[in-house]
Design a binder for these strands. Structure first.
Lengths: 367, 367
DNA sequence: TTGTAAGCGTTATCAG
DNA sequence: CTGATAACGCTTACAA
């Protein structure tokens, strides 16, 4: 796989990585280090001594500058620069019980939708001075529980999930945390706290309607067996029934592993001789796999087979003939979630704790 | 964008999200909550009182069970369960100076390569009982500096970056942290501490060789202006020169925004009448855009135009005619980086601090 | 094997 | 506006 490298190894093409020299005046952070190795980090007390004020005044000067006289504020400022002082968040949190860390957990890091949402959310919090950190739960109850245990310990300022928490035990732990909690990506009746979501059931219904409108009557469903996939399937089934469409085949997977899985699903369907005129994939990755496979098999799209996806994959719009999908504005969801949490953290009276995102049909010709 | 929703709103299709009831016996976490709202979290002292031992014995029973008598260990165990006690990591870190948090920063969350690496790395640390959290730096020095300031404050057990730190000031801060630091995705001569990387310069050279071997002589380069893109370009230029190939055109972008950017780059090249027989894109997203655009324009691949990408995009392998790329085993890199850091954290004497990943040519027919 | 004492660096509280 | 004092909950060092 790789090979060990010793500095000075011959025969390697090293990268001449750019180095950008330090522009700061001497006496900055370096002042914290004596000649004999990294020194102890400066504490509030050190700064206080240097500025000739009390520690608590330093604390105030940094957190509520308005409540400290200009003179002392400046002295503190200077002392902070000289010592390279940085607050110790652990001590701060230990005492105050408050932190400026916001944690977000995604079921899956590889998902474009989740990445878009988290990126937008990160933007909101980082702009507001919070440290936005992310973790993953891998669609696993076990991991999710571990993450929530960690939360219970870390007491972040707020938490967000790209999904809804299903285990009662975990819901209980979260409630007990007593911090703003954001669930997303579904529309349950009883969110733990806050929610920016959309109805997956409705998405499934909408999928049926879109296919029906284009004349498809015998359809297949490909998607995840559990979680939101199951919700979309439920809505899809219901509306198909109402519209007199037949779901000829349902291919359920436990975990979405990649495009090739979508290929395999479609080719299995074809090999089985299922007579379908369209397929709804509850996930863009699967839909793209189907699209590829259909083209490889020479099946004309949407003439012989309509393909409908779900999500917000960048490539869905670009790949010919264009993948028609249902989805939401993921970045918008992330931004909204961030702003709602932020409002709560700022102490604003927030009445609206639940927001519903509109479902968007992006018609690109594959249906 | 969205619409406000009040519980009980009519007309909405709510999701019947699965709820999995709590299987634990009563008296678990709930015991921590009295009738009057969430009670104070149990502390070590509470547990000690209940178990009738000293606080330090509780601490030991939890961290080094072997050093406590079986009797007391059991009493502690029971008391922990009864109170729902969970360690307060802030107090723990404040005193010990050690944390079990590992932080990883990616330049860009949307990158499949980085996601793969982080996911693999997360696996390693989570299995070992660490809390693995991720942040993003958005390819911005400013964000990177902010992240590193946060690090300086948080003192995680270890840190990893999907890249190499360029700002001297930041390198200095990291060194002063005195924790294991992992840089990746390049092969500088002077990493801060540990490194699992590969030579981007060599990747550029290899790209030239791959194109040359297939008979291409007049080529274009499309990629990021800065960072690793620049390194790849440097190697590409050098080897092209040596092999007598001409780089007819270099299209440099500041930031990769999506497939459509690749499309635009190729169509600009074509519109300008540049006579090229191949293009090397230092990024799969751009390469896929080129591939799409070439097909749209009716340019045969690789007959009239060879396209070579860089990265590990899932779709590159699936999209006809298959995108030939150069890349590394991203998940392998992440795993390796995680394991090397873990070895250091376990106190093992680690001699090899630098590991070089092999470059892989994945020939899929687009060159 | 167990416990005592002290303190990590910060902030809440209250007094001046 | 400023400061003294006492914690926050845990772990290190040392003593028994």
């Amino acid at each position: 796989m790789g090979s060990d490298t010793e500095p000075g190894d011959a025969g390697f093409v090293y990268d001449d990585v750019v180095r950008i020299p330090d522009a700061r005046a001497p006496g900055g952070l370096d002042a914290a280090e004596g000649a004999d190795g990294p020194a102890r980090r400066a504490s509030l007390a050190d700064v206080a001594r240097l500025a000739d004020v009390s520690p608590i005044t330093v604390s105030r000067a940094l957190r509520q500058p308005g409540r400290v006289s200009a003179d002392k504020r400046q002295r503190v400022q200077r002392a902070v620069e000289q010592t390279g002082y940085r607050i110790n968040p652990y001590a701060s949190i230990l005492k105050s019980g408050r932190s400026n860390i916001v944690l977000a957990f995604a079921s899956n890091l590889m998902s474009e939708q989740f990445s878009l949402a988290l990126q937008a959310c990160a933007e909101v919090f980082e702009t507001a001075g919070y440290l936005f950190l992310m973790g993953q739960t891998s669609y696993s109850y076990e991991r999710e529980t571990a993450a929530i245990q960690a939360l219970h310990a870390m007491k972040p300022a707020a938490v967000m999930f790209t999904g809804v928490i299903e285990l009662e035990a975990n819901r209980e732990v979260l409630r007990a945390l007593d911090i703003p909690i954001m669930e997303t990506w579904a529309l349950p009746r009883d969110p733990i706290d806050m929610l920016v979501g959309f109805s997956n059931t409705e998405a499934g219904q909408l999928a049926a309607e879109v296919l029906f409108a284009k004349g498809h009557r015998r359809v297949a469903y490909i998607g995840r067996r559990g979680g939101r996939g199951a919700l979309r399937l439920q809505g899809f089934r219901r509306r198909c029934g109402e519209l007199g469409m037949e779901i000829v085949r349902e291919l359920l997977v436990d975990e979405v592993t990649g495009l090739s899985q979508g290929r395999a699903c479609l080719s299995a369907t074809v090999a089985a001789g299922a007579e379908i005129d369209a397929v709804f994939c509850s996930n863009d990755v699967l839909a793209l796999g189907c699209l590829m496979e259909a083209r490889r098999l020479g099946i004309s799209i949407p003439g012989s087979l309509g393909i409908l996806g779900f999500g917000e994959s960048d490539i869905a719009a670009e790949i010919p003939p264009g993948l028609t999908t249902i989805g939401i504005d993921s970045a918008g969801l992330g931004r909204e979630a961030g702003e709602m949490l932020l409002a709560r953290l700022s102490g604003e009276a927030v009445e609206v704790k639940v927001r519903r995102m509109d479902l968007l049909v992006r018609d690109r010709g594959s249906v």
